[in-house]
């Protein structure tokens, strides 16, 4: 019980301390706003911020979906043939180690359509954990079980369907959880790059805009929304994963 309340209590204490410090030390609001000022900034224009949040979340979820389909299918292709493995693996790693801010401007120029280019950027970031986790899961069944499938004359296709895919499911789901957070980060980074190019619908652009105007409370409000969205995505995907595994029978 106390462990459940502890994080909330700590958060509340920190907020009170923050507000008190800002007030007692007389810190100007354009340097560090207190929590009440941040709340005030949100209350002043909730619709604007929430619409931007929805825009960012749309990019995030579309990217996550695309990354899940691409990551899982490429991992399956790789697990099915050595040739595919040799062909795909180095490129997947190359994609993983290239910093998004470095390639985002190129992607935005090449793709043209702002929404699509944001989705492409976020997908690139979200792809790797899904791909790598699924690949690990597909390779996870112990050699004895593969022997057993071989002994009973199961071909590649049946081994994939009845052994490797089910074994990969928990790995895929934990990859999904990691990638959910990363897709949000990818969407925000891409928006920051795109925002300086005049694309202005996402939450990251609200942060840029507010910082240009020295509207620190609004900037903080946008940041808080982003943090909350990240936490919700993480917990939501975690709960989703547990639910699927329970239905799958792993009680």
């Amino acid at each position: 019980m106390i462990l459940r309340v502890a994080p909330w209590l700590f958060g509340l204490l920190a907020l009170v301390g923050w507000e008190l410090t800002v007030r007692l030390a007389d810190v100007p609001v354009y340097i560090i706003p207190g929590p009440l000022a941040v709340l005030g900034a949100f209350a002043a224009d909730p619709a604007g911020l929430l619409v931007s949040l929805a825009s960012t979340l749309t990019v995030t979820f579309v990217a996550l979906l695309v990354a899940a389909i691409l990551g899982a299918s490429m991992a399956i292709a790789m697990a099915s043939s050595r040739m595919a493995q040799a062909a795909i693996q180095p490129w997947a790693v190359a994609l993983q180690v290239t910093p998004l801010p470095a390639i985002a401007p190129l992607i935005i120029i090449w793709v043209g359509d702002p929404f699509t280019s944001l989705v492409v950027c976020a997908t690139i970031v979200a792809f790797f954990p899904l791909f790598a986790n699924t690949a690990t899961g597909l390779a996870s069944p112990p050699p004895e079980l593969r022997d057993l499938f071989q002994l009973y004359g199961a071909g590649r296709w049946k081994t994939m369907l009845l052994l490797r895919l089910p074994a990969a499911l928990p790995y895929f789901l934990s990859g999904l959880r990691i990638s959910g957070g990363l897709a949000l980060v990818g969407a925000v980074v891409a928006e920051l790059v795109a925002g300086s190019g005049g694309f202005t619908s996402g939450l990251a652009y609200r942060i840029l805009e507010a910082s240009f105007r020295l509207e620190m409370p609004r900037m903080f409000a946008a940041l808080v929304l982003l943090a909350l969205a990240g936490i919700t995505i993480n917990h939501g995907l975690g709960a989703f994963g547990r639910r699927v595994l329970r239905r799958w029978g792993d009680t």
Binding site: P142, E144, L148, Y152, G153, P166, W248, G249
Partner: peptide, 19 residues
Amino acid sequence: DPGDTGYVFQDATLLPWAT
């Protein structure tokens, strides 16, 4: 033929998701 030979390993090596 497959099926005419049964094999039991040191570990039970069951499918953990199956009953």
